[in-house]
Write a protein that binds this DNA or RNA. Structure first.
Lengths: 194, 194
DNA sequence: TGTACATCAGTGAACGCGCGTTCACTGATGTAC
DNA sequence: TGTACATCAGTGAACGCGCGTTCACTGATGTAC
């Protein structure tokens, strides 16, 4: 049966929300339309009233996840003063066991970057834009005078964050996993202060 | 028809070789048994004479890819003297556009780390062991006196390498992609020399 | 404000397809004598 | 060394299953009057 315009919009939001989480958890290939719709409290047939295809959902859900990630970073960073403390807060949160164990609610770059590199179409551009936004937030917290130097180091810092999370999630040994997170955090803290 | 013992062993090697490459390129879910066997010059039916299941192949192909990766690193590093030059060589190779564009022949951690974190079973242990081996090779090139400090920084350095490769592959903008690789390389070079 | 009706969001069965896996069969291998 | 035969690697059809997508249908919505 038809639903109100508001309900339709709510359903769409719910599908995007659920999809952005399940994609991050299980990968683009690891979760199907039917399960996403079920998780959103709907049946799979109605999916195509909201999205043109799974690829369309992949792009839009990724965009949403990246935007929410940037908003989350903003909350952690606050006004960004003092910068070293704000950067330390970001690193501590990002390189935590909690973040490692909650991929569905966590960083989209770390969770879906590899999946995206295997994808063709709109998602790859969406990812580049999402990545740029996060890199800029890191750059704003770095001490270098020159804008180019800040950006260069922001890219390196973010790479280390993403790589550490990917590695910490891949290994099965909890001691090694924690060691990876700690090593990356301490390495970046030491530099962030300099 | 039956084949000689040597041919059987060759076929097994060829399946592993092809699988280790195709998995890295397309992910564990992105390539099927039939296509792997076809790429190895065989038909899919014979697969189960060689491996118990796809999961079994995933584990064994990953192990092979990780071992070959370690061997490749050894060739790049050489005798490891002088250490800063050896580390610089490793970074230059790892963070090259060639490596970025050849995921099927490249680093298994960067290509399949995220896939592995979604997997359960033997692969995750295989990955932890493979990762340990690579980290040790980096640690041996670092200047820190204390073993623990070398290991800590080796983990951080490797995280940055992996993250940079993942990010460089995910974005569609070739300028940004190259920028990521360069930023990570210069960041690590500066520290490696210190 | 009330009524008639076109619209369309949602349902669930059905579609074709590709997947991992199984199976009967083939015929070369390699062993027993 | 030669022969008979059990073994088994490889083939290709077939299996059940889950996937993305389509479709006829339902009935509440929201618009035209």
């Amino acid at each position: 049966m038809k639903v109100t315009r508001e309900q339709f919009a709510e359903h769409r939001e719910r599908i995007l929300e659920v999809a952005s989480s399940l994609f991050r958890e299980k990968g683009f290939d690891g979760i199907g339309i039917a399960d996403i719709m079920k998780a959103a409290g709907l049946t799979h047939g109605g999916f195509y009233r909201h999205f043109a295809s799974k690829d369309d959902l992949i792009d839009q859900a990724s965009r949403r996840a990246l935007l929410q990630g940037a908003a989350h970073w903003e909350r952690i960073i606050g006004d960004g003063n003092p910068a070293p403390a704000a950067l330390a807060r970001l690193l501590q949160t990002y390189l935590s066991e909690a973040h490692r164990d909650a991929s569905g609610k966590g960083c989209t770059i770390a969770a879906l970057g590899v999946d995206t590199s295997r994808q063709q179409g709109a998602v790859r551009k969406t990812f580049a834009q999402g990545l740029e936004a996060l890199v800029e937030k890191i750059a704003a917290l770095l001490p270098e005078r020159a804008r180019a130097a800040r950006r260069r180091r922001a890219l390196a810092v973010f790479a280390q964050m993403v790589g550490a999370l990917v590695m910490a999630r891949a290994v099965d040994d909890p001691v090694l996993s924690k060691e990876i997170l700690t090593a990356a955090a301490s390495g970046l803290d030491a530099r962030g202060a300099g």
